[in-house]
């Protein structure tokens, strides 16, 4: 019987110290509620992205409303719509240009798995090109589904190990 993740987390927290744990919690809180997203919009899901970002289903309520059109300034790569083989290198370049910490959300079934397009031109899921944190299925997903995906991403950011001690060897 192995060690449960909860036990591992507790052990790590105990070994790290109270102040660093609280600092990491604060960092997680700050990061999850101020996501600057880069909307890599290609296709039909872009219409639902527009609806989610606008007044009716406001994305700004969750702190994720600020759209940054430069990968250097963004920390969330929102891949919206079908990625074709022609576009995949561009996606990889944009992902590489983003600075850490960065997260990727696959918006729509075409990014999750290729969607209804199983042919010579479409990448069958962007996770063969870049690592993905949250998958939002739907063709296109309703704005409520997108907001649910954002909440899951925020939870993930809150729980993950916050990288801030770059340069240290642990």
């Amino acid at each position: 019987m192995g060690v449960s993740p909860g036990a591992k987390r507790t052990a790590r927290h105990m070994s790290e110290g109270y102040l660093t744990t609280k600092f990491e919690n604060a960092l997680g809180w700050a990061r999850e509620f101020s996501l600057f997203h880069y909307p890599f919009v290609t296709a039909c899901c872009g219409m639902e992205y527009m609806s989610t970002a606008c007044a009716h289903f406001d994305l700004d309520r969750f702190g994720a409303g600020l759209t940054r059109f430069s990968p250097r300034q963004a920390d969330l790569l929102l891949v919206v719509g079908t990625i074709t083989m022609k576009l995949a290198p561009v996606l990889k370049t944009v992902y590489d240009q983003m600075a850490e910490p960065k997260w990727v959300v696959a918006f729509g079934t075409c990014t999750v798995s290729g969607g209804i397009y199983d042919n010579y031109a479409v990448v069958q899921g962007i996770d063969s090109v870049i690592p993905v944190d949250v998958y939002i299925p739907g063709c296109p997903p309703r704005p409520e589904t997108v907001l649910d995906g954002f909440l899951k991403l925020q939870e993930k950011i809150r729980r993950q190990k916050q990288e801030w001690r770059w340069g240290r060897k642990d």
């Binding site: 290609t42 296709a43 039909c44 219409m47 719509g81 079908t82 074709t84 022609k86 576009l87 561009v90 209804i116 397009y117 042919n119 010579y120 031109a121 479409v122």
Partner: peptide, 29 residues
């Protein structure tokens, strides 16, 4: 060509009834 999703070739492999959802996604607005 960055969004070429092979619509015409896909439609040759679907029946007349089942290719209807592909037509939705052409001019998607």
């Amino acid at each position: 060509g960055y969004l070429h999703r092979g619509f015409e070739k896909t439609c040759e492999n679907r029946t007349y009834f089942t290719l209807l959802p592909y037509t939705d996604r052409l001019n998607y607005v």
